[in-house]
């Protein structure tokens, strides 16, 4: 899926090292691969390339604790960085407080956009621990939900803000 439809003759492949959800990883990466391409290759399917233009938020991941669009990030540039995806939020079979809040509030139908909303919510609550509704709307305006679960998503963020364990602990999760 990664390179077969591309003209990769001119590509320069480089070995990069980075931390992915807390684990040190190494990968051979072609210059034109974006971060979503790489994550898919590493069997992580939470970040999805949807609009491919940074507008929809389905590919939101955290690079060095900053939310970015994976589809607009060249994979070679995460060399030496710390990357977090939705898969790393909780141990296998468990959910973290933001994921649980999305379920409690029924904040999705098809779920395609949900990992992106969850990752953005993490960054929002780090920056503004108790966001107002306008702040939530503004912060998540770059995440699109085609099922239009927006009222439930806003409630889920408010619920997550209330259920947030301990700010230090949350920061620790990303460390």
């Amino acid at each position: 899926m990664v390179c077969n439809d591309m003209n990769d003759k001119a590509a320069v492949v480089r070995r990069i090292r980075f931390r992915l959800n807390g684990r040190q990883r190494e990968a051979q990466v072609a210059s034109h691969e974006n971060l979503v391409d790489l994550l898919v290759r590493l069997d992580l399917f939470g970040a999805r390339e949807s609009c491919g233009q940074g507008l929809c938020g389905c590919c939101t991941v955290l690079v060095d604790d900053i939310a970015v669009s994976g589809c607009l990030t060249l994979a070679q540039l995460v060399d030496g960085c710390e990357v977090h995806t939705v898969e790393g939020l909780a141990e296998k079979g468990k959910l973290d407080f933001v994921q649980q809040a999305f379920i409690d509030e029924g904040a999705f139908q098809c779920g395609f956009c949900t990992p992106g909303f969850v990752m953005m919510t993490h960054e929002l609550l780090k920056r503004i621990p108790e966001p107002s509704e306008p702040e939530i709307r503004e912060y998540l305006s770059g995440n699109l939900c085609r099922c239009a679960a927006y009222p439930e998503i806003i409630r889920a963020v408010q619920t997550a803000a209330r259920n947030r364990p301990d700010p230090a602990g949350v920061a620790g999760e990303h460390a």
Binding site: G54, G57, A67, Y139, N143
Partner: peptide, 12 residues
């Protein structure tokens, strides 16, 4: 900035 693209774009 508030209406310039979105948070992720402004982050990068």
């Amino acid at each position: 900035m508030k209406r310039l693209a979105n948070v992720r774009v402004r982050n990068a």
